[in-house]
Design a protein around this nucleic acid. Structure first.
Lengths: 337, 337
DNA sequence: CTCTTTCTTGCAACCGGTTGCATTAGCAAC
DNA sequence: GTTGCTAATGCAACCGGTTGCAAGAAAGAG
């Protein structure tokens, strides 16, 4: 129980001999209050360690200054390595939100539940959503559009879409990865993609195809496999690749986690990385550097992506301006290729 | 802008021909309202997809139903692998909070800032804190105690402390790890600890010492080194160990991440794990299983720890009852030892 | 039938901050 | 000295839900 004698704006008003309205305006730096009055009030508030009551402010302004980070890890008891991408981008998002006076809630979403968005938005609990889910993403986007919810998406937006997004240049990423493998002399270059229905994966494939075609090579369907970004799926996909094309000497993998799984498979089959098979990953998560065999990978600037997701969503909430950002990618050469 | 015609309890009251008070009581399942009236009101609310306004409820009840997850990753632009422990326990915490109607904010804390706790608590933004920081933990505990903030700590509580905590049995963990290494025939067993001022590390050392003494062996100070749980510190500590005792044939490492770093050092010096040097880690994070050489490790039940952190903090907020829980640990034998 | 007790629901004040509009003081122009 | 305009501040209603206490209805006992 808080027994401080100075707890509300009314208390500050009594001490400063002004009205609550003047105190509220002074603490919010309103131009309607004379500068010397404002300074005096702010000094009194500081002296008494005054804290404005956030629920009261939220009620009267009808804003929560809170963003929901929507992840689909609802089904697990705990986060894991599989969620490292979310973890890393989360840090960038909270760093972007904090200077703007916003907080971030983590929201697990059951993809079968169509009420989750209204439950958070129409109750006034959050002002908007950062959508990270990959399963049922289109369905979630539709849900959010239907209720006119402010949101931003990590990933390639739908054609003709009118919502905010931040993505990276996947075509260039695919091309850079493949060009590197070509440049170091690899002859039989495989593609281990994420979920094949995703635009990002399709664009990385396009970049891979472009790089091959640029040197007069053809795409071999036996060299194309897909996972779902999980470690297990990367493992299985790499096994399938080696079964289908035992003589492949390079693989471009659509995520660092699947790349590490692929390396495990390669090494377990008695082959050397990068000697026998060169491996390029994607994302440049921290694990890429920590792996005993540091990963050559395509860096998406995840801290910057997080920061822009935050800032662009808040800008949309405040102004209604929709922004779509495509970040550049870069090849990071380490030891796996 | 929400143009729904049924937005507030007053709207439901008008439709149901009762007062706001009755609607509020019905939606909160109060026994003061007749059962048939309650049913009727709940049906009307359901029919109109009514959502109670959370800021208004928070203001009138003076509760936010929000918990702050306090981590000290304030200094980085993004989370990383170093934060995998926090990520994994975070999942357990949100799973524990959600059925209780609570949300979780992630709060970065500058250890030099002494106002962070009042900033969140006295503004009514959060109802309590889960304290995960390891740097300046004692200082944060003092800060929270000074302002009578509800909180719970992951880790061993201070002697005579009167606050909630969840920890695991570190002495047993240290003993189990060392006994296992003894049992598989290792002669020169090293200890690579976390930060040596931490009670957890001291307790794990005690377990290590007990196991050695139980078989008539002495503790060799040249076999004791400390890191700070970071990958880099684990790497450096293992290098120091091998410099000091090139003939060691086992090492008990106080975290999975440092264990992986240790394995990297061992392999980079041309030695085999577990052939030349057996390695046991701690925590049983998801990475322990994903590593190409799956880690033998001491499992702390992280999902359960997270769930209990959540439930016991909410119980303290609601009832004032302080609970301290020590979870059992277990040895998980994989391939590194 | 009357009185007392209990049940059910309503009244309205409160939680604390925001802000449109009103009021008053001060200043400048005539 | 008067009038008109602007600046500074105050008033009080509002944001929406909660709940202590009051009022009235219903039921039971005598």
């Amino acid at each position: 129980m808080n027994t401080k004698s100075v707890r509300t704006i009314a208390d500050i008003a009594r001490i400063a001999n002004v009205s609550k309205a003047t105190v509220s305006r002074a603490l919010n730096d309103s131009p309607l209050v004379r500068a010397e009055t404002k300074k005096r009030i702010q000094a009194i508030a500081e002296e008494h360690h005054f804290r404005i009551n956030i629920p009261a402010r939220n009620l009267s302004t009808q804003k929560s200054h809170t963003i929901a980070f929507v992840t689909n890890a609802y089904h697990v008891k705990a986060f894991s390595m599989e969620d490292l991408f979310s973890l890393e981008i989360m840090g960038g998002i909270t760093n972007g939100l904090h200077p703007l006076g916003y907080e971030m809630l983590i929201v697990h979403v059951d993809p079968r539940d169509s009420e989750w968005a209204t439950q958070y938005l129409e109750s006034g609990r959050v002002d908007g959503f950062v959508l990270m889910t990959s399963s049922k993403k289109q369905s979630h986007i539709k849900t959010l559009l239907d209720i006119h919810a402010p949101f931003i998406v990590w990933g390639v937006p739908q054609a003709n879409a009118n919502y905010c997004s931040v993505t990276a240049d996947n075509v260039t990423g695919g091309r850079l990865a493949t060009e590197h493998l070509i440049q170091i002399g690899r002859q039989k270059i495989a593609f281990l993609g994420g979920s094949d229905y995703e635009r990002e994966v399709q664009e990385r494939l396009k970049g891979y195809e472009q790089a091959l075609q640029n040197v007069g090579r053809q795409v071999d369907p036996n060299l194309l496999v897909y996972g779902d970004y999980s470690h297990a799926s990367g493992y299985a996909a790499m096994e399938q690749l080696l079964d289908q094309a035992p003589d492949l000497d390079a693989v471009f993998v659509n995520s660092d986690l699947m790349a590490i799984a692929a390396i495990n498979v390669i090494q377990n089959r008695g082959k050397q990385v990068p000697g026998d098979i060169a491996v390029v990953g994607y994302d440049d998560l921290s694990i890429a550097n920590y792996n005993n065999l540091p990963l050559t990978t395509i860096r998406q600037n995840i801290p910057l992506a997080g920061k822009l997701l935050a800032e662009n969503l808040v800008q949309y909430i405040q102004t209604g301006v929709v922004t779509n950002v495509t970040l550049p990618v870069e090849l990071v050469v380490r030891k796996s290729a």
